[in-house]
Design a protein around this nucleic acid. Structure first.
Lengths: 104, 104
DNA sequence: ACGTTATATAATACAATCGTTATATAAAGA
DNA sequence: TCTTTATATAACGATTGTATTATATAACGT
């Protein structure tokens, strides 16, 4: 029973992280290729700290991974996250046009 | 571009509805069989109006359907919801023990 | 060492979410 | 008609989520 509650809590936490348009768009982009913070700052109409905060939430839950290269921090999807498959299913379910690999 | 934004907004709205433990549990139960409000009131440690509000949110978004029978209102999953398949995938991804059909 | 660029954190404001209690409505049964 | 049962709505408060601005840190280039 406690076990059941835990699984439900984990899932609701996971879905909460995905239930924000900015974070969904971030994940959709990261599904194509790595991006650094500045890519997203250009992309969205929100401040740099706001972008940073979204990335922090996704990183804290291990949905994305980061890697520093010189002064940039590059983010990518974590393929080993327990719900990685579900994440891909959700991204596909949005059924959006593909993002060109070269695009910013 | 606008189209893309709409799809992302729709998905984030949908996920927001599922990102609550009580609503996930409600949906998990409804996946097994119909329930009325009073079933859920017994089941959860929240007030009847709180249960009613969760059901209203799910109904408004067409994720569940209702049917009145005498003084009871029975809820069930809407198999024609655009994201019905995704909903089932999410419920399965929680990988919980099956709920016996006869159970309350 | 200093200025610039990239990113993170702190403080704060505002809006959304989710609970409660009190009350209303609808159907049933005496 | 009156009471009971099932459900919904309204009003309100606490908590959480998401933005902003200001400031800090880290790496780079001159």
């Amino acid at each position: 029973m406690i076990e059941t509650t835990n699984r439900i809590d984990e899932m609701s936490q996971f879905l909460k992280l995905l239930s924000d348009g900015t974070r969904l768009e971030i994940l959709r982009r990261l599904h194509v290729r790595e991006h650094c913070v500045c890519d997203f700052v250009e992309m969205f109409d929100i401040s740099q700290p706001a972008v940073s905060r979204h990335l922090k939430l996704l990183r804290q839950s291990q949905i994305i991974l980061e890697r520093r290269e010189r002064q940039w921090i590059h983010f990518r999807i974590n393929p080993d996250h327990p719900q990685h498959e579900l994440l891909l299913t959700i991204l596909n379910a949005m059924d959006l046009p593909a993002i060109p690999k070269k695009n910013c």
